[in-house]
Simulated scan of single mutants.
Amino acid sequence: MTIPDSSSHDVWRPRVTVACVVTDRDRYLMVEEEINGCMAYNQPAGHLDDFESLQQAAVRETREETGWTVALTHLIGVHQWRSKEHCEVIVRFSFAAKPLHHDPQQPLDVGVRRALWLTRGEIAALGERLRSPMVLMSIDDWLAGQRLPLSVVTSLMPSGDAP
């Protein structure tokens, strides 16, 4: 087996993302955002940054997109999907989280119009306006009781280990 040269620009790389299913009784924290001129709905989600653990990314993205500070409770699952938006493969780590504190003064990420709480039925009714099929899939996995301990996701990079 030949191992590809990691410095080559020909090496295929998926986009690694994180998302949080934040629950408050029967409601879920959602983000309304503008994507390519259209409104879309998603959980708080985004890309993993260099020198960041998956857990740190999930908490950061939730705060940046909603103003909510959350505590992660479980890993719900890892989903792979090819985006219709940019035709790239997304590998998404979906976490469950509980809301701790909301800062209404927190500026939201560019493109995010608002954060809102919706029921599963209201989210399903959004249909094609959902950013991806992973939105409803991760909620349904949560409702089905799919919960893995956070310890299954390990980072070997010391925090603050930036160049």
Results as ranks from 00 to 15, higher is better:
L72S: 13
F51L: 00
C20S: 14
G77K: 12
V31W: 09
S155L: 03
D161I: 05
M1Q: 10
S8E: 04
W12C: 00
Q106P: 02
P133Y: 03
T69M: 15
P99H: 06
L150E: 10
V70L: 11
R113I: 10
C87D: 13
G77A: 09
R82F: 00
G145T: 01
E128N: 15
Y28L: 09
G111I: 02
S132H: 04
H9P: 05
L156A: 13
Q146M: 02
I139Q: 06
L136I: 12
L48H: 09
D109M: 12
R114A: 03
W12N: 07
L75G: 12
L150G: 06
R60S: 05
L118P: 00
V59F: 04
Q105Y: 08
E128T: 11
E85M: 08
W81P: 08
H47T: 03
P107N: 10
H102G: 02
T17I: 08
Q43F: 15
R92K: 15
S155R: 05
W142G: 02
P104H: 12
G77C: 11
V153Y: 06
P99M: 02
V89N: 13
Q55H: 00
F93C: 13
E122T: 06
L118G: 03
P149K: 03
S83N: 09
H101Q: 15
P14L: 03
P163E: 13
H47D: 07
D5R: 02
L29S: 09
E85V: 11
T154W: 04
D103H: 10
R120E: 15
A96P: 10
H102F: 12
E32P: 04
R82D: 04
E34M: 08
P163G: 10
I76M: 14
W12H: 07
S151V: 05
V152P: 03
E33T: 05
G46I: 01
I139H: 01
W12L: 12
E33P: 01
R131N: 08
R131Q: 10
E61Y: 08
H79F: 15
H74E: 14
E88H: 02
E64T: 09
V135W: 03
D140L: 00
D49E: 05
L130C: 08
S138F: 02
I35C: 03
G160I: 11
G77S: 07
N42L: 04
L126N: 08
A162Y: 11
T69G: 11
V152A: 05
D141H: 08
R82P: 03
M134K: 08
S8Y: 00
A45H: 12
E52D: 07
P107G: 11
A96N: 06
I76G: 14
N42A: 06
H9C: 04
R60N: 06
P163H: 13
S83A: 15
T17R: 13
E52G: 02
Y41H: 14
D140E: 14
H74Q: 13
V16N: 00
K98R: 15
L156H: 12
A115F: 07
G160V: 12
I123R: 01
L126M: 14
P158K: 12
M137C: 01
W117R: 10
K84G: 04
C38M: 07
S159M: 11
L118M: 11
Q55K: 14
E64N: 15
R147D: 08
E85R: 12
R113H: 13
W12M: 09
L143I: 00
Q43H: 15
L118F: 05
V31N: 07
R113C: 09
L118A: 04
V70M: 12
